[in-house]
C-alpha cells in the first residue's frame, strides 16, 4: 500500500470533529504509512488528540488566516501540506469546508479528486472507492492511476478512530496566506427554537405537501399541522425533512409551514441525510423524493393513499391513515 495523507481541519477549539476521526479510521483501515495534515487556527490540540493513531508525521498549517473556512486560504494550506507530505493518496472528510477547497487543490497538484465516497477498500494492493452516481441511483466502485488522488469521505460511513490523547509533535509547514478578497463575516443559523435540521438525530421526520392540502372536511389545517410537527420534533429531537412540493410552497409565500425551507428538502435536488430511521407523513414517496432516503435504514410512512410510492417497496411499513389523527395520538403518547 502506498503512503496515505489524511487531511483534516480543526474546529474552533483546535480539536477534530467526528467526520475527521472517521476519515482517520478509514485511512488506518487501508494499512500503509500514514501521515496527517492539520489546518486551522490551532492544530496542536488535534495532534494531541490523535497522537495514538500511529501517524509517521503530523504536518500542520496554523494561524489566524486559516481559522475561517475560505477557499483561497484553505486551498493554499492543503496544497502546501500535500506537497510537503508527497503522498499519493490523500483522504479527507466531506465537510463543507473541504468540499469547497480540495477539488481545486487536486487540480493544482496535477491529481484527481473523487467526492462523497461511501466505501474504501484495497483491491490488488490499491485503493478502490465506492460512490453513488445519478443522485444515489447507482453505486460504483472505481480506481484511478493518477496521483495524488484526493478522496473525500462522506460522514457516517466509516468507524471513527478512538484512542487516548497524548502529546504529539507537529511539523509546521510554512505557508504565506494568499491575498484574498473574501472575508467570512459569520454564520446564519435558524433561531434555536426553530432548529429543525439535526444531522445526528436517530429519526428523520419528513413532512409532505399533504399537510397543507385540503382535508376531508374541505378545509386546510396549516396551523394544526405546524403544531403537530413542531411538537413531535421538540419531544423526539428528530430532524425535519420536507418534500419539494412542500418546501416550494413555503418559499413562494404560501408560508403554511413557516419553519420549512429549501435546506429541509430531501431528494433529487435536496439532501440525502443519514439517519437510522425515517417517518414520512403526507408525502407521496415519488422516486425523485425517495432517492434522498438512500441512507435511511428503517422507513415507515403514513399516507391516506394505499397506492402511494411508499407502499410499492419503498418503505418497510405504510400506515394507511390520516396523518393528522395518527400524529395527534403519537404526540399524546409522547407527552408532546
Amino acid at each position: 500500500m502506498e503512503p496515505i495523507l489524511l487531511l483534516a481541519h480543526t474546529e474552533a477549539d483546535g480539536t477534530l470533529a467526528k467526520p475527521a476521526l472517521e476519515a482517520l479510521g478509514a485511512a488506518l483501515s487501508l494499512g500503509g504509512e500514514l501521515n496527517v495534515g492539520l489546518v486551522g487556527a490551532e492544530v496542536q490540540p488535534a495532534a494531541n488528540q490523535i497522537s495514538g493513531a500511529g501517524a509517521k508525521r503530523i504536518l500542520g498549517v496554523a494561524g489566524e488566516a486559516f481559522s475561517q473556512p475560505r477557499y483561497a486560504t484553505d486551498a493554499a494550506a492543503a496544497e502546501a501540506i500535500c506537497r510537503a507530505a508527497g503522498a499519493g493518496i490523500v483522504l479527507a472528510p466531506s465537510t463543507s469546508r473541504w468540499s469547497r477547497a480540495l477539488p481545486g487543490v487536486a487540480y493544482r497538484l496535477g491529481g484527481r479528486v473523487d467526492t462523497h465516497s461511501t466505501g474504501l477498500e484495497l483491491r490488488n494492493g490499491a485503493p478502490a472507492v465506492t460512490r453513488w452516481f445519478y443522485r444515489q441511483r447507482m453505486e460504483a466502485v472505481l480506481s484511478r492511476e493518477q496521483r495524488p488522488w484526493v478522496v473525500l469521505l462522506d460522514p457516517g460511513c466509516f468507524a471513527a478512530w478512538s484512542g487516548p490523547a497524548g502529546t504529539a509533535t507537529v511539523e509546521n509547514v510554512p505557508v504565506e496566506a494568499p491575498p484574498t478578497r473574501t472575508t467570512v463575516t459569520g454564520v446564519q443559523a435558524p433561531k434555536a427554537d426553530e432548529q429543525t435540521i439535526r444531522p445526528d438525530a436517530k429519526l428523520l421526520f419528513v413532512a409532505g405537501a399533504g399537510w397543507t392540502k385540503k382535508q376531508a372536511d374541505g378545509a386546510i389545517h396549516g396551523r394544526e399541522a405546524e403544531t403537530l410537527i413542531l411538537g413531535f420534533l421538540r419531544t423526539t429531537k428528530s430532524s425535519l425533512g420536507g418534500s419539494k412540493s412542500l418546501v416550494d410552497a413555503s418559499g413562494e409565500g404560501e408560508a403554511v409551514l413557516g419553519f420549512m425551507t429549501h435546506l429541509n428538502q430531501i431528494g433529487q435536488t435536496g439532501s440525502t441525510p443519514r439517519h437510522r430511521k425515517g417517518l414520512s407523513t403526507c408525502c407521496h414517496g415519488e422516486e425523485p423524493h425517495v432517492v434522498g432516503w438512500r441512507f435511511v435504514n428503517e422507513r415507515r410512512a403514513i399516507n391516506l393513499d394505499p397506492n402511494c410510492g411508499w407502499a410499492r417497496g419503498k418503505a418497510d411499513v405504510v400506515y394507511v391513515a390520516d396523518a393528522f389523527e395518527v400524529m395527534r395520538h403519537v404526540n399524546q403518547l409522547l407527552g408532546a
Partner: peptide, 27 residues
C-alpha cells in the same frame, strides 16, 4: 479512471401495508 463495477441498489423492500387498524394502535 477505471470503473470496477456499477450496480443498482437492492431494489424493493417488503412493504407491510397497515389498513383498518385503529389510529390509536398505529400511534
Amino acid at each position: 479512471l477505471r470503473f470496477e463495477s456499477v450496480s443498482l441498489p437492492k431494489q424493493q423492500r417488503e412493504t407491510r401495508i397497515v389498513k383498518n387498524m385503529p389510529v390509536e394502535e398505529m400511534a
